[in-house]
Design a binder for these strands. Sequence first.
DNA 1: CGAGATGTGTCAATATGGCTGACGTAAAAT
DNA 2: ATTTTACGTCAGCCATATTGACACATCTCG
Lengths: 167, 167
Amino acid sequence: MADVKSEPAQSFLRDEELRQAIELLFFAYRDFTAEPDAILAKWKFGRAHHRVIYFVGRHPQISVTELLGILKITKQSLSRVLGQLVRDAYIVQRPGLRDRRQRLLELTERGKELERQLSETQRALIARAYRAAGGGSVEGFRKVLLGMINEEDRRRFPRPLTGTGPR
Amino acid sequence: MADVKSEPAQSFLRDEELRQAIELLFFAYRDFTAEPDAILAKWKFGRAHHRVIYFVGRHPQISVTELLGILKITKQSLSRVLGQLVRDAYIVQRPGLRDRRQRLLELTERGKELERQLSETQRALIARAYRAAGGGSVEGFRKVLLGMINEEDRRRFPRPLTGTGPR
DNA sequence: CGAGATGTGTCAATATGGCTGACGTAAAAT
DNA sequence: ATTTTACGTCAGCCATATTGACACATCTCG
């Protein structure tokens, strides 16, 4: 139970506001993934492949363990998807120099091309939304999403804005 | 095409900014669904059940076709999940009055209880993020997400804010 | 009234992407 | 030398999605 009666208007508005956020996230995420999903279908790949390609592209030389940490899936789940991408030459693996047990992952040219194609649709979608919302909104968007992310992964996102470091 | 070389710094920053958004969405959505997923697992349900329960709770008397329109899945996919929820008495179906072909959906008390439990964790997560980000950020968050949603579904979200009223 | 469109359910087949548990091997760390 | 770590793999299970076809009741419209 727990509502309406006990705290009349204030909690009702609050609940409504929060539910709107739930729905915004649902619809936005659904549309956010729709285009890449369609592209991937042509290659007989799925969303899981996209995630792997994206993060390998983002972090060249990433180790399998690190990638598992980002995706939060099991080794076996990753293995099937990663195996396909390696076999089809979208990703290459090579032993780490410091630690030769590692298989460091990197996109091939082919992989980069697919990555570009996939993320382009998403970047365009976000760019459009950013433009429509106006510059002031972007900061709020980032802050709220950041607040939804667990402490640990939050550290992946540097300072207040895209600016700071050299890089 | 289109990068780095042609427009040196500006497009680089822009790309970086957009990629951050991609990742924010990925991590936030992942964490956003983690808790409900864990709860659902106890009931042997999955995320699909959550979506159905949520939207039926949100739109009592919704028809199957309308629900399909929201979820953007096929009738067959919905049917299995919905069938379970009806069999287990989380949802009741009854013929529409105006159109008796329709099976209008509604949560039972049991369904409402589960809905409350599931969405509570999400509302709490968002409330925390809203608080941390500050009131000014919420508007931006909403605007950007809204801009990512297709024209049609965007209409589901009424006015600028939850508080055309007092508050 | 009758024909067609609509809302819903269902059957069969298939694919994807998660999971657990167990085991193996190479290399690093202690 | 032993233990731990990084990675791979096998086998099996389950949830969720797909397409295509068909059936039935009911509504709508000429």
